[in-house]
Simulated scan of single mutants.
Amino acid sequence: MTVNTVGLDLAKDVFQVHGISANGRVIFNKTVKRAKLLQFFEALPPCVVGMEACGSAHHWGRELGKLGHDVRLMPAGYVKPYVKRGKTDAVDAEAICEAVRRPTMRFVELKTEDQQAILAIHRTRDLVVRQQTQIVNMIRSILREFGHILPTGVGAILTFAKRHLGGDHPDMPELANGILGTL
């Protein structure tokens, strides 16, 4: 029998693949190592491959699409109702295979490398802004312990630092000078 649909449970090193025929008969449910995954799918005729939209799913989706497979990504929350018993990789791959065949299933669009690169830039910038806010709030909190009440924002911290880093100040302990010197 020919494989019609494959459920692929992604992992770091060992992937679980569950393949069924057009009438739903299980043809295989096995593990495949990362190094052999593309080779495994090269040997299959073009079919529908379902995956949860998680880390590395877009990469593998692009790679399997190059081999002629119809790759469909689904939100993990949409796959969960199809898990029939305890959570294992084999059960997850079977649930993915079941979910991808549902006519009402909603799919996530496969992202290009350029789209992922732009998203990575935005996520990185967001992280830097959040960390900057945390640091500024921490410095303001520490300075309050020494009687310096500063307004919110990076500008207030920088102004304070420039004004007080010119030498030893009796009201500014060495520790605070060191912290402000990192800005």
Rank of each mutant, 00 (worst) to 15 (best):
T2Q: 15
N4E: 14
T5Q: 01
V6W: 02
V6E: 01
D9A: 09
L10F: 08
L10D: 05
K12P: 03
D13H: 14
F15S: 02
F15G: 02
Q16N: 07
V17H: 03
H18W: 10
I20P: 00
I20M: 15
S21V: 04
A22L: 14
A22K: 15
G24E: 06
G24F: 00
V26D: 11
V26Q: 13
I27T: 05
N29L: 14
K36G: 00
K36A: 12
L37T: 10
L38T: 08
L38S: 05
F40C: 02
E42Y: 00
L44S: 08
P45G: 04
P45R: 01
P46W: 07
V49T: 09
V49Q: 00
M51D: 01
A53R: 00
C54N: 06
C54F: 07
C54S: 12
S56G: 09
S56T: 15
G61T: 03
E63V: 05
L64V: 11
L64N: 06
L64F: 12
G65F: 08
H69A: 10
V71Y: 01
M74T: 03
M74W: 01
P75V: 01
A76V: 07
G77C: 03
Y78I: 01
V79A: 03
V79Q: 04
K80L: 13
P81N: 10
Y82Q: 06
Y82A: 04
K84N: 13
K84H: 07
R85P: 00
R85M: 10
G86E: 11
T88L: 12
D89L: 12
D89E: 13
V91G: 11
V91M: 15
A93V: 06
E94T: 05
A95I: 08
I96L: 05
I96M: 05
I96P: 02
I96F: 06
E98G: 02
A99E: 03
V100D: 06
R102H: 15
P103T: 06
M105R: 04
F107W: 12
F107N: 11
V108Q: 03
V108N: 03
L110I: 07
L110P: 04
T112D: 00
E113M: 09
D114A: 15
Q115P: 03
H122A: 08
T124V: 00
R125M: 11
D126Y: 07
D126C: 07
V128L: 15
V129H: 12
V129M: 13
Q131M: 14
Q131C: 07
Q131K: 12
Q134G: 07
Q134W: 08
I135A: 15
V136G: 11
N137Q: 09
R140W: 09
S141E: 10
S141M: 05
E145N: 08
F146V: 09
I149M: 12
L150D: 02
L150M: 05
T152R: 15
G153V: 05
V154G: 07
L158T: 14
T159D: 12
A161P: 02
A161W: 02
H164A: 00
P173H: 10
E174T: 14
E174V: 14
N177C: 05
T182I: 10
